[in-house]
């Protein structure tokens, strides 16, 4: 199973991320975001920990992904790995530890402006699939 893939969209970036568990699919969505900003392999030089809350599962995903845009612009943090991901499916709360590096060491091809709810879904078939569109 691939971690994620990109689909057709005229102006923006549409992705699908996969996982055996919801946690894995969430983590792979974040990697799709990171890969939309740079294709280079990011090193793990820094570690951060954060928690996110949501009103429902989609909202939790939105807030989780938006956190990376925030960390990117405000701290120049670029993600390499998500670990210790825990999702409380009843309370829509998430905590994780992320690894990454200083953004200015890499070259970029797009500026993700925002996470959107456009065509977003989170579902379980054989495995978990998350779909979303990043506004660029």
């Amino acid at each position: 199973m691939e971690k994620f893939e990109f689909l057709e969209h005229t102006a923006d970036i549409k992705f699908q991320a996969f996982g055996e568990t919801l946690e894995e699919a969430f983590s792979n969505s974040a990697l799709a975001l990171s890969n939309s900003i740079t294709e280079e392999k990011i090193k793990s030089k820094k570690e951060l920990k954060f928690q996110v809350k949501g009103k429902n599962m989609e909202n939790l995903l939105y807030n989780f992904l938006e956190e990376f845009l925030f960390l990117f612009d405000s701290e120049s943090f670029l993600l390499s790995k998500v670990k210790e991901m825990k999702i409380n499916k009843e309370k829509f709360e998430l905590s994780c530890v992320v690894e990454g590096d200083e953004a200015n060491k890499y070259s970029f091809h797009s500026d993700i402006k925002a996470i959107t709810y456009n065509e977003m879904f989170i579902k379980k078939e054989k495995h978990w699939i998350i779909q979303g569109v990043f506004d660029v």
């Binding site: 900003i37 845009l69 612009d73 405000s74 970029f108 091809h109 500026d111 660029v136």
Partner: peptide
């Protein structure tokens, strides 16, 4: 405050993509 944090270090920058 979050918007300000995202922008404060970016005055005088092109940004990537189609800029």
């Amino acid at each position: 405050a979050r918007a300000k944090k995202r922008g404060i270090g970016q005055v005088g920058t092109l940004g990537a993509g189609n800029h």
